[in-house]
């Protein structure tokens, strides 16, 4: 049983490492930020699985704090990038790559689909 939990936690860790590709490649800052949010969710999963596997009930509190506060960075980001960026102020390395998609710059941000 514990072996299963640890294996599952390891699998989630591997998904985080694969997700890093999106952070490294981008291309937009929205992609990077959303990946970090996804990592937060995987991290909560890892903490809960380890908490049961290693019999450390305090890890539930750690997971709670993570789940609660992961949103703060997202709010800090959305506040500044919630609307499409005006032309000429790219947030990322390679503005040329991104320009065709610019109107939908952060299509995944929740503030869009109001």
């Amino acid at each position: 049983m514990n072996l299963l939990l640890v294996t599952a936690a390891g699998f989630l860790l591997l998904t985080i490492l694969f997700g890093l590709i999106r952070v490294l490649r981008g291309p937009g800052s929205g992609d990077r930020m959303l990946t970090a949010q996804l990592f937060g969710t995987s991290g909560v999963g890892i903490l809960l699985l380890l908490g049961f596997a290693l019999d450390q009930p305090a890890l539930v509190d750690v997971a709670l704090v993570f789940a609660l506060l992961a949103v703060v960075a997202a709010v800090a980001f959305v506040r500044q990038h919630g609307l499409p960026e005006p032309a000429g102020t790219p947030m990322h390395e390679n503005p040329v790559e991104e320009d065709p998609h610019d109107p939908g710059h952060n299509p995944t941000e929740k503030t869009h689909d109001r």
């Binding site: 985080i16 952070v23 970090a36 990592f39 991290g43 380890l50 890890l59 960075a73 947030m91």
Partner: peptide
């Protein structure tokens, strides 16, 4: 070379670090 990417990676670093402290 992109500071925004560095910051997102640092946030990820903090998450992995918390898991390391658990271990």
């Amino acid at each position: 070379t992109d500071l925004f990417r560095a910051v997102v990676l640092f946030i990820t670093f903090g998450l992995l670090l918390a898991i390391a402290w658990v271990r």
